[in-house]
């Protein structure tokens, strides 16, 4: 099997499990929406504060969902000794990485789509120029899914992984939060020219971490 066939096999497996377990739909999406509500409680909804900070709130919520998604993605491999089976399977580390990262990216994109509706409805945000917003979101999501999968496997066999992953992952994805938030702000303000450089940064981050993940996932899976 080629790299991409193997990756598709793994991604298909993860997405099918997710579709069955319905954790995203029944837990992670409601979690995201309640976070939006809580933001509105914490910040005064009447004075236009919410519109101004909506991009930041959106991406902070995505980061929180990323932590849950990473934890889910590797909890699945922890049951019934599935991680050992995966190591014995004969699949290449790079393709397992690509598969798991793409599945996570797809899950995050679904989450983000629903959360966008939430932001538009609850915070009264108008998305003026869509192209940089959509491209930026996709790049950011790929970058987040790649780094998340990388740190997920790094912490997979560790007892304290639930606390270790945030400590390791969040500083690394700080540039994604910056880039994604700025590109959203510019898109909402209707100044796509300001957004594109940030989109480019997000693209570079995504390519870089997909590359690192493909190299490092295999060795890390062995040590998990």
């Amino acid at each position: 099997m080629s790299l991409f066939q193997e990756a598709a096999l793994v991604a298909g497996k993860d997405l099918r499990i997710e579709a069955r377990a319905k954790v995203i739909g029944q837990q992670i999406v409601p979690f995201g929406l309640i976070v939006l509500l809580l933001f509105a409680f914490a910040l005064d909804p009447d004075r236009g504060v919410l519109q101004r900070v909506a991009p930041g709130l959106f991406w902070i919520t995505v980061l929180l969902a990323l932590l849950l998604g990473v934890s889910r993605s590797f909890a699945v491999e922890a049951e019934n000794g599935a991680r050992d089976a995966l190591r014995m399977s004969g699949l290449d580390g790079s393709s397992i990485f690509l598969g798991k990262a793409s599945a996570l990216a797809v899950e995050l994109l679904v989450f983000e789509a629903l959360l966008t509706v939430g932001v538009v409805v609850l915070f009264d945000v108008r998305l003026a120029s869509l192209p940089p917003l959509v491209v930026g979101t996709v790049f950011a999501t790929v970058g987040l899914a790649a780094t998340g999968t990388l740190y997920g496997v790094l912490a997979a066999g560790i007892r304290a992984r639930e606390t270790l992953v945030p400590v390791l992952l969040l500083p690394v994805v700080a540039p994604v939060l910056l880039g994604a938030t700025r590109s959203w702000e510019s898109s909402i303000d209707g100044v796509p020219g300001d957004a594109w450089p940030w989109v480019a940064l997000l693209g570079i981050f995504a390519v870089l971490f997909v590359g690192i993940g493909m190299l490092a996932f295999g060795p890390l899976l062995e040590e998990s």
């Binding site: 099918r16 499990i17 699945v76 019934n80 000794g81 599935a82 050992d84 089976a85």
Partner: peptide, 18 residues
């Protein structure tokens, strides 16, 4: 050598939701 080995462990190594 792993591709030539079948390890039937105590756990099935299978996914609950499949």
């Amino acid at each position: 050598h792993r591709s030539r080995v079948a390890f039937v462990a105590q756990d099935t190594g299978c996914y609950e939701d499949l």
